[in-house]
Write a protein that binds this DNA or RNA. Structure first.
Lengths: 185, 185
DNA sequence: TTTGGCATGTAATCCGTTACATGATTAG
DNA sequence: CTAATCATGTAACGGATTACATGCCAAA
């Protein structure tokens, strides 16, 4: 059996945020693709079926709402749902099996592939720099907020920044090593 | 269609390492669970079927070898396999969708769950410290090696160290924030 | 001889992505 | 009018883990 899906809990958690305003599947996807996209992902193919299942289990309740003329089926978390979510929060988070293709390629690398490895490294270093800058910007914006959720989101932003920064440093050092090997050979 | 499996290339890459000595499925699993376990994982359920498929495609060739009395079916990479592997190495590595349950829980956290979050954070920080120390030890050992594969493995070890170090720093800062909130409320 | 590790595999199952399908609304 | 976007879904597919099954060899 594959390990337990965390999708239902993500959904419950998002519905539980910010005062528990009802959200549609589309809204939830927006949240995931927005603020948390750098450490989590869900597809519609997961969200909509799970939403139905959660409603059937009375962990969330559906209510048809109209916004801007369009009909949307929005869901709100129930008391039962809050309990379920809280129990999941207590459980020790699994350290998911990291699969980093860049590191893997570096590990498997040999002299002949150095130019390609350098290309990959440069590309990802630049990406990491961009990400870091973006997070820093968001952090600036978050600093001023008074919402009770803010400190938690700040912590995750700082995680992204720290990770990106460490990555850039390491990438630069590794590039130096690779270029030295390339020249020497 | 789910994205292309990288398992065959990992296997080809490992068979390509260190002079291309023939390895069995068991050996390959040992390598993966050993040096690269912190950034890659494969199960027997993946390895053995892929091994057969690769042999059928003539990317590796099977040969029954005896070691320590036991019979083992070991595989060696072929010239065709090396080409396939090299082409994969040229391709830009995908930045796999990171799913970090700890960060997710922090993001979804609210005041009531702070004690649990602190527990999770402490646990993972201590894990990261241990990992970092372990990598540092391995790095010491690797530094002296003259094998041509060594520099690449050193780079990946340094990645692990840098990541672990950054994580510990961030975790300590975050713990301070959480404890401050807890006291203040 | 029986226990346990070595070694090889298969089957069931489930998660998650991709692709497809549909309709309603708004902007041009 | 029509193209784009909003919004909601479903079906098919494939990857990966887990659990199960098997047999050999060595040591107690």
């Amino acid at each position: 059996m594959a390990r337990e899906s965390r999708t239902p809990f993500v959904i419950l958690g998002i519905l539980n945020m910010g005062g528990g305003k009802p959200l549609s599947g589309y809204d939830i996807k927006q949240v995931i693709d927005g603020a948390i996209s750098h450490f989590w992902a869900e597809s519609y193919g997961q969200i909509y079926p799970v939403l139905k299942r959660l409603a059937a289990d009375k962990l969330i309740c559906a209510g048809a709402v109209k916004r801007a003329g369009r009909k949307r089926s929005a869901y709100a978390i129930t008391a039962k749902g809050r309990i379920e979510f809280s129990q999941w929060m207590q459980r020790s988070p699994e350290h998911g099996p990291r699969r980093d293709e860049l590191i893997l390629k570096l590990f498997l690398g040999s002299k002949t592939e150095i130019p390609a490895l350098i290309r990959h490294l440069v590309q990802r270093r630049d990406q990491a720099r961009e990400m870091g800058d973006q997070y820093s910007g968001w952090l600036q914006m978050s600093q001023g907020k008074k919402e009770s959720d803010a400190p938690f989101q700040i912590i995750t932003l700082r995680a992204g920044i720290a990770q990106a920064h460490a990555f850039v440093r390491w990438a630069d050092e590794s590039l130096a090593i690779l270029r030295r090997i390339e020249k020497g050979k």
